[in-house]
Design a protein around this nucleic acid. Structure first.
Ligand SMILES: [Zn+2]
Ligand SMILES: [Zn+2]
Ligand SMILES: [Zn+2]
Ligand SMILES: [Zn+2]
Lengths: 131, 131
DNA sequence: CAATTGATGTAATAACATTACATTAAAACG
DNA sequence: CGTTTTAATGTAATGTTATTACATCAATTG
């Protein structure tokens, strides 16, 4: 699915995430955008839903927060299994992809006849600077 | 860390999870235990904190819910990386462990000098029956 | 027994997310 | 162009998940 032109609200949320150092919760995004006219959580959640659908943003399940995708390649379609390291010290999030992991998980789920739709891999710990 | 004797509240929460078909949210557990004297969320959350610490229970980040550990071996200590398949259809959760995944993740995090404390792997999709 | 530590009870509040309904903007079509 | 349809937005209310604060009680320790 090619990414369509973003709407006004989608663009504002995307910009907020892109310019952020780390992940932000929906309510943090809302606060950042209040002086640009945002009033209600739903404005953020609706924009996030689309951005997630387009693959421009990822949700971090263990933080209830969102980050802009840092994949180098374009977001034309699904970019396979995405994994993250998340530093408890500085909040830094690093996105990475690994085909070995992907293939191993694929083999394991195939063995139990499980049809995968979405895979979450989040590694909490401390980065080099915060160790 | 050897698992100490469970307290009254911890035992009730553990039993509720053990006898449940699938994962339960903290508030669902609270409702199940109301007629056994539970009144407030904190009674559940405090018990869950301990059960998680002892490795008897796992938290599913993508569901905000909890399941009893189904590991065959005893819970004397950390049982490495735990992964789950979660069926969107019937709610069935399957816990599994794989050293290949564990080693690959270990290599990847070591490469970025990241010190792992907790790893979350959750695979959402449909089980064989619900495919 | 006094002091400390761990567990519990209760209320209030914070943080995260969705439902419902009205309105407006954009796209598709004759 | 005007009509129909679809997508996006605005707003309020509510639902769900989790924590803070403070008082009490029980078990352990010296
Ligand atoms: Zn990405
Ligand atoms: Zn750090
Ligand atoms: Zn387990
Ligand atoms: Zn199923």
């Amino acid at each position: 699915m090619a990414t369509p032109q973003l709407t006004k609200n989608q663009t504002m949320v995307m910009d907020a995430l892109s310019h952020s150092e780390g992940p932000m919760s929906a309510y943090t995004i809302l606060d950042k955008l209040r002086d640009q006219g945002f009033r209600a959580p739903l404005q953020v959640y609706r924009a996030l839903d689309k951005l997630l659908e387009y693959g421009l943003v990822h949700r971090l399940e263990s933080l209830n927060a969102f980050v802009a995708c840092t994949c180098p390649h374009e977001h034309e379609q699904d970019h396979g299994v995405t994994a993250f390291t998340i530093c408890e010290g500085c909040g830094q999030v690093t996105e990475f992809h690994d085909t070995a992991i992907e293939q191993r998980l694929s083999a394991l789920t195939r063995a139990q006849n499980f049809k995968t739709e979405k895979t979450t891999i989040e590694i909490r710990g401390h980065c080099q600077s915060c160790a």
